[in-house]
Amino acid sequence: MTPLVLVAGDEFQAPGPSIFNFPPLYEGAPAWLTKPVIFAVVGALLVCAFAWSAFAKPQLVPRGMQNIGEKGYEFVRDQVARPFLGKDAERWMPLLMSLFFLILLWNLFGVVPLIQIPIASHIAFPIVFAVVIYALRIYLGIKHQGPIGYFKNMMFPPGLPKPIYLLLSPIEFLSNMIIAPFTHAVRLFANMFAGHMLLAFFSSVGFWFLFERLTPLGSGLGVLGAVMTIAMTGFEMFIEFLQAFLFTLLAAMYIGGALHADH
């Protein structure tokens, strides 16, 4: 199913962005029905099953899945929700926790053998998350601070001479309304995309120089590629966890900023 990147010619060809394009699953399938879409749905179902098995029948003394679920819950609550939402943390935990686990699972698909596609490396998926958080943020901000108060708190930091506002307010508006959600989505996308490219590059170096064209000179390069693949896989798992954490953290930060005006 994976498109083989090393096909024609006698020269090593580095994999390009085309490794992210998948054909439809079977003949005559609609064009959107590709491997990433399937695994996005599988990931969502897996998160549902995980949450169900962990929290459906809670015991006072946790055992099995409930142990793992509670560790995850505590991690998200103490590291993400509490620092940014304070006493509102419990109210937003369902959203933040499902966001964290879904993104984490989708990212980890990048290093699972045979799946090997981080779902978030297709920018459509992070964009949907970012748009949801963005809409939620504006709705909450207008609800809690009033339509005028929200934009006033956002665009006019107090205690400055009037003419300065003319210079600073456009920056503040553009930063909060357009650049922030954009970077929110792009940060996750770019990390997954680049990480997957790196993995694909090193593993294809190893494959090409050790299996396809084994020469005395090239074998050293092939070994290097294989070793780097193993090292980068470990590194990727760390990055994948970190990006899921950061995405959730920024979501909590935006929600917290909409609930209370900063300062």
């Binding site: 920056i171 503040e172 553009l174 930063s175 909060n176 357009i178 650049i179 922030a180 970077t183």
Partner: peptide, 8 residues
């Protein structure tokens, strides 16, 4: 994002 929007 502040610096980027300032530049923009």
């Amino acid at each position: 994002s502040y610096i980027l929007s300032g530049i923009l």
